[in-house]
Computed example of a mutant assay.
Amino acid sequence: MDNEWCRTMQAQTAAGKRVGRVRIVDDPPTTGQLYLLNNAKRNAATGEDMRNLWRADAERLHLPAEDCWIFDSRFIALLHFDEADTLLHVELITEPAEVMRYAQARDAALHHSYAFEQFTALVAATQE
């Protein structure tokens, strides 16, 4: 945990701030998704709520396909990628109705997702 990100997350969660994410995962998971799932142990140790949701479940729930970050329920950082998954730019959204739309999607994703430990066990069971 000796890097700036981990120290920052530990300080923020120790101060009572909630930090978390839901990652959408293919079935079977890609090599990159398996790497991120393994890396979630480190993030969770900082206090982050690391969760996962199968892509089929996200689609069934009609969750947005975009990748975004929500900050203090006041603005969205919408990430734009190209076909090679290279980040092109970040769009900041502050319009309240749009922020609420993403917050509702976040709440649905959280409700239907699995904590990373539980999801890791699910992935291991499907690979046997």
Rank of each mutant, 00 (worst) to 15 (best):
V19Q: 07
D26L: 11
D49L: 06
E48T: 03
N52V: 09
Q33N: 06
T31L: 11
P28R: 07
N39H: 13
V19S: 09
A14Y: 00
D27V: 10
T31D: 14
L36D: 11
P28A: 07
L36H: 13
L36S: 09
K41R: 15
T46F: 06
R23S: 09
R51G: 03
V19G: 07
K41E: 14
V25W: 02
L37F: 07
T13M: 02
A14M: 02
Q33R: 04
G47N: 05
G16K: 08
K41Q: 14
G32V: 07
Y35A: 15
V19R: 11
L37R: 10
A15W: 08
D26T: 10
P29W: 00
G47C: 05
R23A: 15
G47R: 01
V19F: 08
L53H: 02
L37Y: 10
T13V: 09
N52W: 15
D26I: 04
A45L: 13
N38A: 14
M50G: 04
R23K: 13
K17I: 08
A14G: 13
L36M: 14
T30M: 01
D26M: 08
R18W: 12
T46L: 04
A44S: 15
M50H: 03
V22T: 06
R51W: 01
N43D: 08
T30V: 01
A44Q: 13
